[in-house]
Nucleic acid binder design. Structure first.
Length: 197
DNA sequence: CATGGGATTGACT
DNA sequence: GTCAATCCCATGC
């Protein structure tokens, strides 16, 4: 996916990334769950402004923002909106596609629906680390490519974001409707005119 | 320089 | 349902 795809309102990108494919060194999966974050709301790391940590978030769109969560997990985001705006889409779950044997080995888990169901789980399965921070998502090592034919018209369900303590009311979680590979089931359904950043 | 919290997960009650 | 693991970094003294 080219830079122009990411240089748009983060909510649009978060919705459009559902059905797209994440690939890293031979392992890949279809994105079935995302969340949007924007520097105008306090759940976003960029809310505090430009710091060493948020430099990638405020940088050019189309880069990977990878950070450590709870001292344990690496979480993958796609940087969005023009440079100078701190916004990104958190990739929360994948439907495994290629390299499934290696993913099972890395995760120590057999069941397919659990391999990449969760932002920390999918980075472990694909072997994505903090070293991938600020990488170009069009060139790799972590690559995001467009929807395969079967996903061209996927129905996207909307819900509130998971695991945050601030701005919990925003309906900024996007899921492939009916997917068995989500980190958690969808609770609410899309409400047109949802709050914009 | 010390402290505290976090976009999580898996094991356990 | 509860809880610890474990580390980066923002904040405050």
């Amino acid at each position: 996916m080219r830079r122009a795809f990411y240089e748009r309102p983060v909510l649009e990108v978060a919705r459009d990334l559902v059905g797209c494919v994440v690939t890293h060194q031979g392992c890949s999966g279809v994105i079935v769950e995302t969340e949007a974050y924007h520097d105008s709301e306090p759940a976003c790391h960029a809310f505090v402004g430009l710091t060493a940590r948020t430099r990638t978030l405020f940088g050019p769109p189309g880069r990977a923002y990878v950070y450590r969560s709870y001292g344990v997990h690496a979480l993958l985001n796609a940087v969005c909106e023009p440079a100078g705006v701190g916004a990104a889409v958190l990739i929360r779950a994948l439907e495994p596609a290629e390299g499934i044997d290696l993913m099972r080995q890395r995760r120590g888990v057999e069941r397919l629906p659990r391999l990449c169901s969760g932002p920390g789980n999918l980075t472990q399965a694909l072997g994505i680390t903090l070293a991938d921070n600020d990488g170009d998502l069009a060139r790799g090592p972590v690559v995001i490519s467009g929807r395969p034919a079967a996903w061209r018209s996927v129905e996207v369900a909307v819900d509130r974001r998971i695991g945050i303590t601030k701005a919990v009311e925003l309906p900024w979680r996007f899921c492939a409707a009916g997917s068995r590979f989500l980190s958690r089931p969808v609770r609410a359904v899309a409400a047109p005119g949802a709050v914009q950043p």
